[in-house]
Simulated assay, not measured.
Amino acid sequence: MKGEVLDGTALVMADDDTVATALEDLDEGDRLADADPPVTVAEEVPFGHKVALADIAAGEPVRKYGEVVGEASEPIARGEWVHTHNCESTRGRGDRAAAADITGSPGEDR
């Protein structure tokens, strides 16, 4: 299998990932000792969902499987559950593409 399994309970696919995917339900207080640095789970994280491996500031990208999968909509602390309540998807966002077309990219002469 590609990636690294942390303590048999969470999967990280790339070195720059900021989240791991829970391979089973994680409970508050569970420890991912194999993470660098180790992570204590701050709240329940359901199977298949994401847990933060690092603090993520509001507006920063969320990286999973070596790809940006979203943007933090509020600050996320290491060990917290990462889902729709604190992360907004950036994939398939036609509204963002349309806004970029209207405003132009930074540094573009208009």
Score class of each variant (00 low, 15 high):
Lys2Phe: 02
Lys2Glu: 02
Gly3Asn: 06
Val5His: 12
Leu6Trp: 15
Asp7Thr: 07
Gly8Lys: 02
Gly8Asp: 04
Thr9Gln: 09
Ala10Glu: 01
Val12Asn: 00
Met13Tyr: 00
Asp15Met: 10
Asp15Pro: 05
Ala20Ser: 09
Thr21Asp: 00
Thr21Trp: 05
Thr21Ala: 03
Ala22Pro: 07
Ala22Arg: 07
Glu24Gln: 13
Glu24Thr: 15
Asp25Glu: 08
Leu26Ser: 07
Leu26Glu: 07
Asp27Glu: 11
Asp27Gln: 14
Gly29Ala: 05
Gly29Leu: 06
Arg31Pro: 04
Leu32Glu: 13
Ala33Glu: 13
Ala33Asn: 13
Asp34Ala: 14
Asp34Val: 00
Ala35Val: 04
Asp36Gly: 02
Asp36Pro: 04
Asp36Ile: 13
Thr40Asn: 11
Val41Asp: 02
Val41Cys: 12
Ala42Trp: 06
Glu43Asp: 14
Pro46His: 11
Gly48Lys: 07
Gly48Leu: 05
Gly48Met: 02
Gly48Val: 08
Lys50Leu: 07
Lys50Met: 02
Val51Leu: 09
Ala52Pro: 10
Leu53Pro: 05
Ala54Asn: 10
Asp55Val: 08
Asp55Trp: 05
Ile56Gln: 05
Ala57Cys: 07
Ala57Asp: 14
Ala58Phe: 11
Gly59Phe: 08
Glu60Ser: 06
Pro61Arg: 10
Pro61Trp: 04
Val62Lys: 08
Arg63His: 12
Lys64Asn: 11
Gly66Ser: 02
Gly66Asp: 06
Gly66Asn: 02
Glu67Pro: 01
Glu67Met: 14
Val68Tyr: 00
Gly70Phe: 00
Gly70Ala: 00
Gly70Met: 01
Glu71Asp: 06
Glu74Leu: 13
Glu74Tyr: 10
Glu74Asp: 11
Pro75Ile: 15
Ile76Pro: 12
Ala77Ile: 00
Ala77Glu: 06
Gly79Phe: 00
Gly79Pro: 10
Trp81His: 15
His85Ile: 07
Asn86Trp: 13
Asn86Gln: 09
Cys87Glu: 02
Thr90Met: 06
Thr90Trp: 01
Thr90Asn: 04
Thr90Gly: 01
Arg91Ser: 03
Gly92Lys: 06
Gly94His: 09
Asp95Glu: 10
Arg96Lys: 09
Ala97Tyr: 13
Ala99Tyr: 06
Ala100Ser: 12
Ala100Gln: 11
Asp101Cys: 05
Asp101Phe: 12
Ile102Tyr: 15
Thr103Ala: 11
Gly104Trp: 14
Ser105Gln: 12
Asp109Ile: 15
Arg110Tyr: 08
Arg110Pro: 02
